[in-house]
């Protein structure tokens, strides 16, 4: 119990100070009560739940596509050395560019609707699956290659029966670190183009310079992110539970 005492009092102290300061400079700094009021208002009048669900829906589509692409590329890199030679420079380059800078180009290519959002999520997220999957594939090939060869398992069978289960814990790690990023990507995308969802509220808040709304949206985003991360973390533990050793990230 004592473990939670200090963090809890830190949060409580912060909320109290914020409330007091906010009482004087409310329009500027908002305050906990104003934030809660805004959340209630957005829920009842602003269709907040609908917007959250739309954002989640878009995010899930983009995330699943990112997983498919990222895992596929990861397999290629882990399995075939030539692919890692070819792709490595691009992956490093990709890692070094702020993805946000690509947004104007993506708007030109994909417009400002759902296609754009999904493209943004894939570009931001797929890469986070590549390296864990590649590591898992390498590990699995190293361990099981000879056995598989002895039983002359190859091709599609090798992929489904050996590579996929073998690298699953690694992929799960990739899932855990990518879910938060996928959510951020979709919110940023919605904020940038103003297409339907949670990010749209931010765009709205930016135009009206409404501090209450910003804090409300940020809080909701934080909450959604925490729930998603928790859910994926649970999945991760389930998928990795048969493994005696901890999985490297």
């Amino acid at each position: 119990m004592n473990k939670y005492l200090l963090p809890a009092s830190g949060v409580a102290g912060f909320l109290i100070i914020w409330q007091i300061v906010g009482a004087f400079q409310g329009d500027f700094l908002s305050s906990p009560t104003r934030m809660v009021g805004e959340i209630v208002y957005l829920t009842t009048e602003g269709g907040l739940i609908g917007l959250v669900l739309i954002t989640l829906g878009t995010m899930l589509i983009g995330w699943v596509l990112s997983i498919v692409i990222g895992v596929f590329v990861g397999f290629l890199i882990g399995r075939y050395r030539i692919m890692s030679v070819i792709l490595e420079p691009y992956l490093i380059a990709k890692y070094s560019v702020p993805i946000i800078a690509l947004v104007p180009l993506l708007v030109i290519w994909f417009g400002i609707e759902e296609g754009f959002l999904i493209a943004t999520i894939i570009i931001a997220t797929a890469i986070m699956l590549v390296f864990p999957t590649a590591a898992g594939t390498k590990e699995t090939v190293r361990t099981y290659d000879q056995v598989a060869r002895a039983y002359s398992i190859s091709g599609w069978h090798f992929f489904i029966k050996i590579l996929l289960p073998g690298s699953l814990p690694f992929i799960a790690t990739g899932l855990r670190i990518s879910v938060q990023r996928a959510l951020m990507a979709v919110i940023v995308g919605e904020f940038l183009v103003g297409y339907n969802g949670l990010g749209t509220l931010l765009k709205d808040a930016r135009i009206r310079l409404d501090a209450d709304e910003v804090f409300a949206v940020a809080f909701i985003a934080l909450l959604v992110g925490a729930v998603l991360t928790g859910a994926v973390g649970y999945l991760d533990r389930r998928l990795s539970s048969w493994r005696p050793v901890a999985v490297t990230s």
């Binding site: 009092s9 940023v188 940020a218 934080l222």
Partner: peptide, 26 residues
Amino acid sequence: DQLFSPLFGSLFLMPRVALIPLIALW
């Protein structure tokens, strides 16, 4: 650290883009 870690942690996890309207306001 224990006192402030939940606050810093949630700031870190928050989409930083959300801060843009606040920064513009402040």
